[in-house]
Structure formats: structure tokens, C-alpha cells
């Protein structure tokens, strides 16, 4: 943006008085800016929440793997020991542990109910593997397992992690798209309001041209009026949006992000940028509308 566009916002009380102070466009601009800023805060929160969840899912799932050993009971202990031996010598693994019967029972509880006789069921042994650094080479580990523990299967979660991460990424994109659409709607509505105000004040503009006002002076007066109104409306709308978000119930779990739209950390700063962005959109929209109207005057 050119510096002259910003300089035009400098207060000029005399020039500001040339634009009649009343009109329905005042209320229209304030209401539009406030409403869209309110929605923008929610879109921001959605975008940041999905981004947060995508990162959490991606990080958490990418760093853990599971080895399932479905060996006959008489070979189970030997294959578990073989797998443990392989894991101890595999680079890129920080820790691993065999899940206890109690932990396996807890995993099955949602499907089979409490008090499962885990010893009586042909349940495979499960080993949780946590990666270190850049992680391990999954294909190499699979080949070693196949050779030394043929009933062991490595599940690095790729199959079901990827769709979840993609879904979260899609939601993040949706949030950004919402912000973009809200920005476009803001610009369109303020352009319409500015055009209506300019049309309603056509006689004022004609008089100003006749007494020697330059286009930049006339456009500047309207740009200041609409930018200030839009900034005021957006401030009120953004503040209301932040208050509404703080009042939403939050569960603080990654799986239930749709009910946890609150901001976190530096995310709380982002709504502060909504009013300035709306003001800049209003400035550009009014400048465009004023240029079109003034071009038609001698």
C-alpha cells in the first residue's frame, strides 16, 4: 500500500466536516464491519484450533508405533523376546515396552466390557515403540521382524494417521477460506455502502469540485469517514467475538477440537489484527468507489 493511502487517514477535522455526518450508510457500515469481524474471530479460532489439532495428531502419532505379535501361546514368549532384542539394536528408537494384561484389558473394555478374562483369550502381545530423533527405518525393521519373529507385525500408524492429518488440514484450509470470504464480503459490503454514500452526496461532491477541491481531497474525506467507521465497528465485533469464544465450553482434548475453539498462547493476539485488516479493506474499497464516482465528474 502506498504511503499516501495511509497519510490520507491523518486527522483533518475541517475536511471531515465536508461529508454530511448522518445517513443510513453509517449504521450499515458499522453493522457490517462489526458482524464480519465477529465472524472473522470465529474463523480465526477455527483455523488455529484445526491447525493445533493437526499438529498434535501428526506429532503424537508419528512418534509412536505398535508391534503386534499373534504367535501361538507356546511361541509367544520367545517371539516377544526376539522382538525386544531387535528393538534394542535398532537405531532411532528411544524406548519400547510390552503392554501389560491390565493395559490390554483397558483397550478392549469399550468393546467387550469390564472384567475381561484376558488370560483366557487369544489376545496378541502388544509392544509400544517410541521413536527418537529422526525415527527408525520402518521397512528395515519389518524385514528383521519377518526373519526373527515371523508372527510380529509392525504398525507405524501411517494408514490411519494420514487421513486424520489430512482431515485436520482440510479444516484448517476451510478456516482460512472462511477468513478470505469474510474479507471479500467486508470489502464488497463497504464498497456498496461507500457507493451509496457517494451517490447520496453527489451534490456535495459537485459543489466541492466547483469550489476547487481536488479529487484526492474529496476521496480522502470519504475514505477517512468509512475507514474510521469500519475500524470502530470491527473493534466492537472482534471484542464481542473474543468474549463469545471465552464463554464457549472447552474440553481441551485434541479429539474434541470442535468444542474447543478457544485461542491458546499467542493465538489470543490474532483477534487484535482483525480491526486493522477491516480498516485497510474499508480504505481500499472506499478509495475504489470514490475514484469511480469522481471520474464521472468534470
Amino acid at each position: 500500500m502506498k504511503l499516501s493511502n495511509l497519510l490520507v487517514l491523518a486527522t483533518d477535522r475541517q475536511a471531515d466536516r465536508i461529508v454530511p455526518p448522518t445517513g443510513y450508510t453509517v449504521r450499515l457500515t458499522l453493522f457490517t464491519a462489526a458482524s464480519l469481524a465477529f465472524l472473522a474471530v470465529f474463523a480465526l479460532a477455527l483455523s488455529l484450533a484445526t491447525s493445533r489439532v493437526a499438529t498434535q495428531w501428526s506429532d503424537a502419532l508419528a512418534r509412536s508405533s505398535t508391534i503386534r505379535i499373534s504367535a501361538p501361546q507356546d511361541q509367544m514368549a520367545a517371539q516377544v523376546a526376539a522382538v525386544e532384542s531387535i528393538l534394542q539394536t535398532t537405531p532411532g528408537i528411544s524406548e519400547f515396552r510390552v503392554l501389560s494384561n491390565e493395559e490390554q484389558a483397558a483397550l478392549l473394555e469399550p468393546w467387550l466390557g469390564a472384567g475381561i478374562p484376558i488370560d483366557a483369550l487369544p489376545v496378541p502381545a502388544l509392544i509400544e515403540v517410541i521413536e527418537a530423533g529422526d525415527g527408525f527405518a520402518a521397512e528395515g525393521l519389518r524385514l528383521r521382524l519377518e526373519a526373527e519373529a515371523p508372527d510380529a507385525v509392525l504398525d507405524d500408524h501411517t494408514r490411519w494417521r494420514q487421513p486424520l492429518v489430512e482431515a485436520a488440514g482440510g479444516l484448517r484450509l476451510l478456516g482460512l477460506l472462511s477468513l478470505l470470504l469474510i474479507g471479500c464480503a467486508t470489502a464488497a459490503m463497504i464498497t456498496l455502502a461507500a457507493q451509496a454514500a457517494l451517490a447520496a452526496n453527489k451534490q456535495v461532491i459537485e459543489v466541492l469540485r466547483l469550489v476547487g477541491a481536488r479529487d484526492s481531497y474529496i476521496a480522502g474525506a470519504f475514505m477517512r469517514r468509512f475507514t474510521n467507521r469500519a475500524a470502530l465497528g470491527a473493534t466492537v465485533g472482534a471484542a464481542a467475538g473474543v468474549i463469545a469464544i471465552t464463554l464457549l465450553p472447552g474440553t481441551r482434548t485434541s479429539e474434541s477440537f470442535l468444542t474447543d475453539l478457544s485461542f491458546e498462547g499467542l493465538g489470543w493476539i490474532t483477534p487484535i489484527f482483525v480491526p486493522p485488516v477491516v480498516a485497510v479493506l474499508a480504505l481500499l474499497a472506499t478509495r475504489h468507489a470514490a475514484a469511480r464516482v469522481l471520474k464521472g465528474l468534470p
Binding site: 475536511a15 466536516r17 465536508i18 454530511p20 459537485e206 459543489v207 469550489v211 476547487g212 477541491a213
Partner: peptide, 20 residues
Amino acid sequence: QFLDHLSVAENIALPLTVSG
């Protein structure tokens, strides 16, 4: 052709106002 929301004095001074 006056600006009705400005006083007579402000209207008379308008050419100076708009030309800075």
C-alpha cells in the same frame, strides 16, 4: 449550491478549506 450541513461562514470559507 451550498453544503446545508455547514454554517454560512463555513460555506463561504469552503474554497480555502478545500485548497488547504
